[in-house]
Write a protein that binds this DNA or RNA. Structure first.
Lengths: 236, 236
DNA sequence: TATATTGGTGAGTATAACTCACTAAAAATG
DNA sequence: CATTTTTAGTGAGTTATACTCACCAATATA
């Protein structure tokens, strides 16, 4: 900051100025929230006037959308690499849930902007941020699809609904944390969500045990049957 | 509306005026959304001036909260009565999911206000609307608890997380409908959500069949074993 | 009829997003 | 080097709207 009247005007190239504005905007939006953030404050932090920002961004809202677009680019980083290291639909599902929770844990303020200011507005649908969000959640849908194809998940499950229950559930559950109240147990939640989604809550649960028992019995029956009847009739 | 200058000033009692303002505010908020709704328009519809509204409500936001509080009172109406007619945790769960979806289907604009303008703001936590929302979602948590106590649902399931996955999932999934895009299949969704929550998506699903098959095999094994070894050794 | 109470008014303030005519620094051109 | 063109940046507006406040007038009460 410089004293009024004695300022030396600094001229930057377009790209540098845009990058600076995006960074300052991200800071101010995170600190104050969208409404309370004043464009004049973003300008003040860069020692420029409001008009300069409107030279590069049509509106305060476009600035917000651009800030979040940049964030999504950061997020995409290692999803594919991380997924490559994990086998089994259930484990891959858990990884994605865990990674998402970790992002929420790491960037609660940006999440708040995304959930509250961006995703809820009319202009979101069809925007670039919307496309990036679709790409982000598509990782999960793909993992679910693979699970179905591999026979690990039921084929009749509506994937889009499941996606919404996972992301919507996390958003609801993490809201207090996002608003600065309480903690967020990333590992525990990832485990519990995976469990609910995969196995449900209905009791009759020891299906795995039943399966094993059935297998054991089948083998015994086969052995017995072979001994009883001379004509060896395998159960295949 | 009357021509400027020729208006007859109408004086109403406090309660009637408050009720009128709430109704007009509900209409305007639903039509325009919170931001775009001007207090002056709410006033204009009642043929009064802005200042009158501020006589009864401290701020535009308090007006919004009051509108939604009234809506919740409407909603509570028949929940208990409806639940009384249904037995079995799974069926009761499905009923609550279905009723919630029906409310979304019937009042998408009020839902939009609730999700987007109210629940996301700082002043929501601890407000009267917050309390009413808790009371509303508590119906679901209670049904889940009953299910656990009756042995129908697993005891280790985190109820609050489940609640958030259901309401958060519905909110995410219904968002397009709420914003006026596409339809909302209330019956189908209620069925699918109940299914996912109760049975999960992991395959190994025919647990009931497995159970029956295991029983059948056990009986056969028993019979066979009795024939093979003279010492009757039941598998019990 | 005089007084108190309260419903209602409308002009005014404050704030913040956005506009625009203009300035001056740098880059391109001769 | 001098001139022209381009463009980064300015800052004084304009506009819109939530909210305030001193005042007015209709009704109830004494």
């Amino acid at each position: 900051m410089s004293r009024a009247g004695t300022r030396k005007i600094v001229r930057l190239g377009r790209e540098q100025r845009v990058a600076d504005i995006l960074q300052a905007a991200r800071d101010v939006f995170c600190e104050k929230g969208y409404e309370a953030a004043a464009v004049s404050e973003i300008a003040a932090r860069l020692d420029i006037v409001e008009g300069t920002i409107y030279k590069y961004f049509e509106s305060k809202r476009e600035l917000l959308l651009k800030v979040l677009e940049h964030w999504y680019e950061e997020l995409f980083g290692d999803y594919e690499r991380d997924l490559a290291g994990v086998a089994g639909a259930r484990q891959r599902l858990r990884l994605l849930v865990w990674r998402h929770l970790r992002s929420v844990h790491e960037y609660p303020l940006l999440c708040r902007l995304m959930f509250r200011e961006v995703r809820a507005e009319q202009d979101y649908h069809g925007s670039t941020v919307y496309a990036k969000n679709r790409r982000y959640t598509q990782f999960l849908v793909d993992v679910l699809k693979e699970g179905v194809e591999a026979g690990e998940f039921r084929a009749d499950v509506p994937l889009a609904l499941l996606r919404d229950m996972i992301y919507g559930g996390i958003e609801h559950h993490a809201w207090n944390f996002i608003c600065g109240r309480g903690e967020l147990d990333v590992d525990g939640l990832a485990e519990q969500i995976t469990l609910i989604v995969c196995d449900g809550i209905a009791v009759q649960r020891p299906a795995a045990d039943l399966g094993r028992e059935t297998q054991r019995l089948s083998q015994i029956v086969d052995r017995m049957e072979r001994k009883l009847s001379p004509r060896s009739k395998s159960t295949k």
